[in-house]
Amino acid sequence: MAETWLYNNPPEAALLSLDEVVRVELAPQIISMLCSTQNLSSLVTHPKYRVGTRDAAGRWIGSPDLPVDTGVSMQVVDWKAFHVPKIWKVYRWQLSKPFENRPTSAMSWTEVNKFDALNDAIEFARFIRKEMSSDAIHY
């Protein structure tokens, strides 16, 4: 099994490949945050989320669906881990979940699990990789 760090600069970013069919990658988390005039100010922590732009789930901030300062939450990427730590996501190379919207032969990286600790993520990735090898034998 070939384990290759395609990029390795934690805590900023890191990407581990297992035989090009399983990946472990560091990712910031998407969190819920109350809309307020303070956190939508360009002077504080999330300047990229402003009234008139969209949150991380695609809703327009400041619209009737996502008004500001009325106790409504927006989804934001905690890019710099100000609120929650980054996590390790495990992806598997397979037919993508919404594959009916893609050409039938299309493959993509699909998230299969996420972990707080790198070692746990790698262990799970190795298990997935081994499982994929077993699948291949059955074919």
Binding site: L15, E25, L26, A27, I30, A56, A57, Q75
Partner: peptide, 9 residues
């Protein structure tokens, strides 16, 4: 779907 958070996404 959602704002991409890393290279793979």
């Amino acid at each position: 779907t959602a704002e991409p958070t890393n290279y793979t996404e």
